[in-house]
């Protein structure tokens, strides 16, 4: 079972995230980054599958130099090898271009049975890269998995449980397939000391666009199919009235709500 996990390096959500004023792209230089927390669930799930059977986990990221940290963390958790696609031309790419680069990298890796991704990145939060990637690779996709069972035999399948508003669904896809996982699926492990030491010896390949046969004109800000025309910080919310409950807090709350016509 060859599993590729797509992981993204994102600005820390706890930090002040912002944009580059020059080109309206997400500021990835001045804000500390890390492996997107939601991708840890994807790494964990891949490790569990391989540990229960056999196979190999490759982590793949598309991003700037610092994105190597995301790979490192996944290798420390236990993934076997890493691929880092890094090319100056990629800066400013949108989901469409990112999915193209990921797709070409996965094709280059070759024999892949399962692609696992997070449900959404914590910065873009579009949650569309996984489906676009599946579309480009011609794979079935089962997304937002809260549970995953993989049957790796001949005619193998990936079966997920998806918790929807109207119903809980069981969905089955034939392998090779793409699965995106939610934060309900498992509890990601922390890298152990052994894992941290072992990661230092694990192979990481760095590929440029030319290694993938992707032309620079297909990616980056200029190739984006959408354009951010402006961004504005939302005015901070001004704190309203805070009352201490002295036996009348509930009445005061009700009074506020009726004054604002909610009652």
């Amino acid at each position: 079972m060859n599993i590729v996990v797509c992981v993204k390096y994102v600005p820390d959500a706890q930090a002040e995230r912002t944009f580059n004023a020059s080109d309206n792209t997400t500021d990835r230089e001045n804000v500390d980054g890390l492996l997107s927390e939601l991708d840890e669930y994807a790494v964990e799930e891949a490790l569990k599958i391989v540990e229960a059977g056999e196979g190999e986990v490759t982590v793949l990221t598309v991003g700037p130099d610092q994105a190597a940290d995301a790979i490192k963390k996944a290798l420390q958790m236990g993934a076997d090898k890493g691929v880092h696609v890094n090319d100056a031309a990629i800066h400013g790419s949108d989901a469409v271009a990112t999915s193209l680069v990921l797709a070409e990298a996965i094709k280059k890796l070759g024999d892949v049975d399962l692609v696992i991704t997070g449900m959404a990145s914590t910065d873009g939060t579009m949650g569309v890269v996984p489906t676009m990637l599946a579309e480009r690779l011609g794979l079935p996709a089962v997304t937002f998995a809260s549970e995953l069972t993989v049957d790796g035999g001949a005619g193998g399948t990936a079966t997920i449980r998806r918790d929807g508003d109207a119903s809980t669904q069981t969905i089955t896809a034939t392998l090779p397939a793409l699965v995106s996982v939610t934060d309900q699926i498992n509890e990601p492990r922390y890298p152990s000391f052994k894992g941290i030491m072992a990661a230092k010896k694990k192979p990481v390949e760095t590929w440029a666009l030319s290694d993938l046969g992707v032309d620079a004109s297909q990616v980056g800000l200029d190739a984006a199919w959408t354009k951010v025309s402006s961004f504005d910080a939302r005015p901070p919310r001004t704190q309203g009235e805070i009352v201490n409950d002295e036996g009348d807090g509930g009445s005061k709350l009700a009074a506020f709500l009726s004054e604002r016509k909610f009652v």
């Binding site: 919310r237 805070i242 009352v243 009348d248 807090g249 009445s251 005061k252 709350l253 009700a254």
Partner: peptide, 22 residues
């Protein structure tokens, strides 16, 4: 920090009182 109106108190006393008043 975000609220237009806040009650510092125990929800088990504040909410029932508000519910009754409403």
């Amino acid at each position: 920090e975000l609220v237009d109106f806040g009650v510092v108190g125990d929800l088990f006393t504040v909410l029932p009182q508000a519910t009754e008043a409403i």
